[in-house]
Design a protein around this nucleic acid. Structure first.
Lengths: 153, 153
DNA sequence: TCACAATCATTGTGTTCACAACTATTTGTG
DNA sequence: CACAAATAGTTGTGAACACAATGATTGTGA
């Protein structure tokens, strides 16, 4: 029966988890900074680069990034300014704006991605090893499924 | 040798991890909101409640929270305003201000903590099971050690 | 056909944060 | 003892974000 407090094992697991997270993201952010990208910007480019025709509707992209509509508008402003993303209005629905990865954005991505991947590997995947990677994926898949089940209610 | 891209297992592990994190923190935040606390505020109270004499120097607290000095000042403003934390100047070193958990802050903590613990259990610990909890602690201990080794350089 | 609700993106408004500059205090050094 | 350097905390400025309101467009039902 769930007590009102954490067991010792739960305590250390939870503590290790939340205290490490800020340091991990800071390390990834720092490795990405030399390329003129934040982690948030990079996520935008990733989603666009994997989308059909290198573009996504603003609202879909906002949902994928867990970002508010205005937050996405503002973030895209920066990427548009440097020319890595452009806005395209839809022909079929003139309400929607597409965020479209430009050719230079794609090449910027190609330049930064290997270093970011190396960064992820260095700070997270290598330290936990192959077995840890497998386990990490399993664990957060379970958490993901739980949270999705909540939303469905 | 580390390739420039992730293997399939690495890919899914990493994706599961980063896509789940925002949802997890949002769920924890939502469960804490009814008690008038943000996750950040709660962290402040936790550190203070575990400290010697329920108080910490501002700079130590900022370091523990990975917060800038100004960020901590602002965050404390809110907690001071509702009377859960108070500022105390040190007798021995007149530069330092202590953040001190008040009696009402302590009781607020006692009220909210069980629910927050239940929230952590519900959204993270239960879905991954006892074995998962153990593994989670192990994994992030390794990451933590790696990151700390970096800082030492 | 027309009105009305729903949807999509943008533009204000306020909050929170980090970075930099500043004041106050302590410590180290000649 | 005096003065420079370091440390602690606060205040100002700017960036990034969420929420609410607005403008624009679509589609649905009378």
């Amino acid at each position: 029966m769930p007590a009102t407090w954490l067991t010792s094992a739960e305590q250390t697991a939870w503590r290790n988890f939340i205290t490490t997270l800020p340091d991990l993201t800071a390390a990834l952010e720092a490795d990405l900074a030399p390329y003129g990208l934040t982690l948030g910007d990079y996520e935008v480019l990733v989603f666009l680069s994997e989308a059909e025709e290198d573009r996504l509707r603003m609202c879909d992209l906002a949902g994928a990034l867990r970002l508010s509509p205005s937050g996405l508008t503002r973030r895209l402003d920066g990427l548009v300014k440097v020319g890595w993303v452009e806005r395209e209005s839809s022909a079929s629905d003139r309400r929607v704006m597409y965020a479209h990865l430009t050719r230079t954005g794609r090449s910027k991505m190609d330049e930064a991605a290997p270093h970011h991947v190396a960064s992820v590997r260095r700070h997270l995947l290598n330290p936990i090893g192959d077995e840890g990677v497998q386990k990490l994926g399993d664990l957060f898949l379970l958490v993901r499924e739980h949270l999705h089940a909540l939303l469905a209610v």
